[in-house]
Write a protein that binds this DNA or RNA. Structure first.
Lengths: 326, 326
DNA sequence: TTGAAAGCGCTAACAG
DNA sequence: CTGTTAGCGCTTTCAA
C-alpha cells in the first residue's frame, strides 16, 4: 500500500499538502492540487484509517450490540443500521451478547480500545452507569436504557392494547396471553396493554396469562396447558411472533382450527408471520425505519450535534391476516 | 483512558518495560513485573488497539461479506463466525453486499484501509483476481471463489440427488424442481443432482423445471404454473427452503394437500422449516459448524499457518418431516 | 534486565 | 499557499 509519503514524493510536495488535498481543508493552489490528485490516482493511494484513527481518536466505526442475530427480529434491525452507516462512511461491528452482561462489558471494552465512535445497544441488562464509564455516544434501540439516552422504540403497551382489542373486535370472548419474560420491559408493557383491555371483563382472571419466555418451544407447551385448562378460550395474544408460532403449533396439536376455533395474534411483524399457514396477524413494528433513525441519531451525536429528542416512539401497525379472520 | 505512559510513570519504569509485561515477551524481573501489574490494575489500563494496529499492521478485526443478513440462511452463518472470532480476540465487521460487485469492492477497500486481518466471503461474483489485489487472507464460505482459496461448503449436487431420491422413495412418480438463479453455482449444482436422479425417467422433460430465483414470492408463482400445467406432479424439490415455503403456499392456494397430494422438500435446513405447517422436509447443511471452521481456518491463515486443505466439504443431512410423509 | 529512541501513517499547529 | 515538525500510543531494536 502506498503511504502519504509516497504520494508526497511522487507529487514533489510535502505530506502536509497531500493531507490538505485529500481532506479538502486548508488552502492549496489549484495546480498543486492537480499534481497531488494525479499522484493519488497513479499510486492508487488510499489513506490509512488506522493512522488517522490514532491521531483523531476516532475510527469511523460503530458497534451494534444485539442479543442474538439468529433471532429473526434482529437481522432487519442490524440491516437498517448497517445500510445507513456504510453510506455515511462508517463500518459496523456486530456483537452478539446473548443478553449476558459479561459479554456486553467485554464488547464495550473492545470498542473503547478500538476507538469505536459510538454504539447502538439492544439490551435489557445494561445500566446507564456502565455506559457512562465508557464515555462514548450511545443510543438505545428497541428497549430503553435510561431516560437520558436517546431511545428508538415503539409504545409496547399501546401495541398490546391494540392487539387485544383486535381479538375482541373479531369476536373473541375469552382471550389468553402468552407473556414474554418477567422483568423484561417490553414483555411487561405488552402484557399491561393486554390487561388494559381485558382486566375488567367479568371472565378475566390471572389464569389467562402464561409465561412463554419469548421462546417458541416453551410457547407450545404453555399454550397447550392454557388451552386444556380452559376450553372456552377463543383468542390468544402472544407477546411476540415467535411465541405466536408456538401457539399455532399448540392449537394444531390439539386439533383446534385457527382462526375458527381460536384466533391468534403475534407481535413484532417479522417476515416469518407471512409464511405460516394460516398467515399470522401481528402488531408490526417499523423495524427498518426505527433502526435507521437510531443510526442517524448516533451519527449526529458522534458529529457533536446534540440530539435533544430522547424518546423516539414509532407507530405500530396492526396487520390483519388469516389467523384472526372470523 | 490511561496510556502506556501513565502506567510507566505510575510504576516508575519505562514504557518499554510496560510493553514487555503486557505482551509477555522479553525478559522482565519478577519484581518489576509485579509493580507494572499493580499499575495496570490501579489505572485500569487497557492497551490501545489502534496504536498497536498501526505498528503491527494488523487489527484483530476481520470482515464478513454476506449478500444480506436479512436472508434467513445468513444469520446463523454469521453467528458461527462471530462466536469463534470473539473468543480468539477478533472483532467482526458485518458487510451486506446485496451481491453487488460494486459494494463488495467498497467493503474490501474499507477493510484494507483499516488493516483488517482477513475476510470471510460469501459471494458468487467476486473473482480471485480482485482478492489477490488486496493481499489479505480470505476464505470462501458457502460458495467457492477459486480452487486455491480455502472453501467451506457442502456438496450441492450430492444434496440435490439425495433430496430427489427421497421424493422417489416416499412414492412420488413425477417430480418437479424449483431451481435457483442460473449461473449461481450452488443453484446449478442442486439442479444437476436432481437431474442425475430423474433424467432417465421416461416421464421427465424440461418442463418439470422452473426458475424460482431463490425467492419466495417468485416460487409461489412458478409453482402454481408448474402445478397447473401438469396435474400429475406429486413431488417438488425446491432449490432452497425459502422457495419450498413458496411451493407450500402455491399448493395450498390450489387446494392441494401436502404431503398427500404433493410432497415438498427444501434445501438448507433453516429454522423456518420447523415452523411451517406441515413442517418441511429439507436437506440440512451444518451451517454453524461450517462457518465456525471457516473462521478457524481464517485465523490460522492470519497467524501464518498454511492451510493446505483447500476444499472443505461438509456432510448434509436429510431431515424427513411431515411435508414428505406419505 | 532495563531504558532511550525510532518509527508505524497521518493530522494540525506553526512558521515562513 | 506550502513545508517543517511534533505528536497520537504502541512495539521493537539497540545499547547499556
Amino acid at each position: 500500500m502506498a503511504t502519504i509519503k509516497d504520494v508526497a514524493q511522487y507529487a514533489k510536495v510535502s505530506v502536509a499538502t497531500v493531507s490538505r488535498v485529500i481532506n479538502q481543508n486548508g488552502y492549496v493552489n489549484e495546480d498543486t492540487r492537480k499534481k497531488v490528485e494525479v499522484a493519488v490516482e497513479s499510486l492508487n493511494y488510499k489513506p490509512n484509517s488506522v493512522a488517522r484513527s490514532l491521531f483523531k481518536k476516532q475510527s469511523k466505526t460503530i458497534g451494534i450490540i444485539v442479543p442474538d442475530i439468529t433471532n429473526p427480529y434482529f437481522p432487519e434491525l442490524v440491516r437498517g443500521v448497517e445500510d445507513y452507516l456504510i453510506q455515511k462512511g462508517f463500518t459496523t461491528i456486530l456483537c452478539n451478547s446473548d443478553e449476558d452482561p459479561e459479554k456486553e462489558r467485554l464488547y464495550l471494552d473492545v470498542m473503547k480500545q478500538k476507538y469505536v465512535d459510538g454504539a447502538i445497544i439492544v439490551s435489557n441488562t445494561i445500566e446507564r452507569e456502565l455506559i457512562d464509564g465508557y464515555d462514548m455516544p450511545v443510543v438505545a434501540l428497541d428497549r430503553s436504557i435510561h431516560h437520558d439516552i436517546p431511545t428508538f422504540a415503539i409504545d409496547n403497551r399501546d401495541g398490546g392494547r391494540i392487539a387485544a382489542e383486535h381479538l375482541l373486535e373479531v369476536g373473541c370472548t375469552r382471550i389468553g396471553h402468552i407473556k414474554g419474560p418477567d422483568k423484561v420491559e417490553n414483555a411487561d408493557n405488552r402484557y399491561l396493554g393486554y390487561l388494559d383491555v381485558v382486566m375488567h371483563k367479568d371472565w378475566f382472571h390471572s389464569g389467562y396469562v402464561v409465561e412463554g419466555n419469548f421462546d417458541q418451544k416453551q410457547a407450545v407447551e404453555v399454550t397447550k396447558e392454557l388451552l386444556q385448562n380452559d376450553r372456552e378460550i377463543d383468542g390468544i395474544f402472544a407477546g411476540n411472533d415467535t411465541m405466536a408460532l408456538g401457539a399455532l403449533k399448540a392449537a394444531e396439536s390439539l386439533n383446534l382450527n385457527v382462526p375458527e376455533d381460536i384466533a391468534i395474534i403475534g407481535f413484532d411483524g417479522i417476515d416469518l408471520t407471512e409464511m405460516t399457514k394460516p398467515e399470522l396477524s401481528t402488531l408490526s413494528q417499523p423495524i427498518y425505519q426505527m433502526s435507521r433513525e437510531a443510526a442517524e441519531a448516533l451519527v449526529a451525536l458522534i458529529e457533536g450535534e446534540l440530539v435533544q429528542e430522547k424518546e423516539n416512539i414509532f407507530p405500530t401497525t396492526l396487520i390483519k391476516r388469516q389467523s384472526t379472520k372470523r
